Amino acid sequence: MAAAAAAGAGPEMVRGQVFDVGPRYTNLSYIGEGAYGMVCSAYDNVNKVRVAIKKISPFEHQTYCQRTLREIKILLRFRHENIIGINDIIRAPTIEQMKDVYIVQDLMETDLYKLLKTQHLSNDHICYFLYQILRGLKYIHSANVLHRDLKPSNLLLNTTCDLKICDFGLARVADPDHDHTGFLTEYVATRWYRAPEIMLNSKGYTKSIDIWSVGCILAEMLSNRPIFPGKHYLDQLNHILGILGSPSQEDLNCIINLKARNYLLSLPHKNKVPWNRLFPNADSKALDLLDKMLTFNPHKRIEVEQALAHPYLEQYYDPSDEPIAEAPFKFDMELDDLPKEKLKELIFEETARFQPGYRS
């Protein structure tokens, strides 16, 4: 834990890192770190609560700039109880001085990944967590956004079992017609939660990839272990087919990539493993919904509104309290091709509203 900075004593240090967030945020305490930044909790002297502050230093890398800009653009436009918001952003007053960006968010005690390492969940908890994931996802999908990296560590939890989806750095506007060349190379989302079509096709992607990830998360809540822990690309596919069985001819016809289709045709026939054999203690309604989410063919996979209306979630289902976005989200430009200098300018502009004396 960093010592509390005395008023006016300059930035606090946390594990050798400068955290320049005073005077409003003090009493910093280390939480963890990701690929390009550290997260601390801090005391907000204005709202009198502890908050989470993520320090991001992305400006050396085009990919990190892209992810940072995506996350900020999306989260500043989203407003939903099951999606983490941005409360404040701290950065230098000029673009030349801006080396880091500090993002202030609600402090959540833990995440689903940490929880599943230590606790076996009751059916009631599984049901409530799944409902909140789908409630947040309904809003995301209504904005025409794909999260693309749903996994237990991106689901934040607090002691009252509130759940918030975080990390929109890989999110995209849904565009089933656009052929994202190089899709697989830039697709760094965790393999275990990846839909089979991501490994088999490169053309376009749809909201059904997020539903697949939610199915993987439900299976993990039922058993405290990942359902498809593939060691590499082909191993991942083999794990999936080992449980779902061989795809039907109709399902194979959806695979545009001939090499991928021929690979699947070359494999020995596998039978589907019954879900109640894998999860003998699970609620039968939970397994019915799991089956509809972990469907090989993305066109037959359940959609988020149908999933919310499934009998497993009937005690929570309330369409009048499951809000959607006001308007579909649009990125003005494809960020993939922009140089990091341009992305830095866009991050600077996007964060201006939090600067003292800002006038829109």
Rank of each mutant, 00 (worst) to 15 (best):
G182W: 14
I31N: 14
E326T: 02
A2T: 13
Q132Y: 04
R277K: 14
H141D: 00
I256Q: 00
L150I: 02
V101G: 13
Q119N: 09
Y139F: 14
Q105I: 15
I209H: 07
S246E: 06
G32N: 05
D283G: 06
C216W: 09
L150V: 02
A52E: 05
D88R: 03
R24C: 11
D177F: 06
A260E: 06
K270M: 14
K55N: 14
N82C: 08
A309T: 15
F183T: 06
D177H: 13
L278G: 08
K114H: 04
E109Y: 09
L241W: 11
Q97I: 02
I86E: 01
L278P: 05
L244A: 01
V14C: 09
L184H: 08
T206M: 07
V21K: 00
L294P: 04
N87L: 01
L264C: 01
Y187F: 15
D149Y: 13
S360H: 12
L287R: 09
F59M: 13
D88V: 13
C216L: 08
S266Q: 02
I211T: 07
I255E: 02
M38P: 13
P93H: 02
G357D: 15
V145L: 13
W192P: 09
H80D: 06
Q236G: 08
A9L: 07
R70D: 01
H232N: 13
F59N: 14
L313T: 03
S153K: 10
H180N: 15
G16S: 08
L115A: 03
G10M: 10
C254Y: 13
N27V: 05
E326L: 07
P196V: 07
G245I: 03
E197K: 13
P356A: 03
N201P: 07
C216R: 10
A9I: 04
Y128C: 13
Q236A: 07
I53R: 02
F329V: 00
I209L: 01
L218C: 08
P93Y: 00
E60N: 13
A35L: 09
I217A: 09
N144Q: 09
E350K: 14
Q315Y: 08
Q17A: 11
A42E: 13
V188C: 11
A3Y: 08
N27T: 09
R172P: 08
L346E: 09
V188N: 06
V39S: 03
N158F: 08
D149N: 12
A309M: 03
V214D: 04
N45W: 12
T63Q: 14
D337I: 08
Y102F: 15
N144P: 01
K151L: 08
I243D: 03
K55D: 05
K330D: 00
M333P: 12
A3C: 05
P268R: 09
L155S: 04
A4H: 08
R50V: 14
F354S: 01
P11L: 12
K114V: 09
A143I: 02
Y316P: 00
L294T: 09
Q66H: 15
V39Y: 07
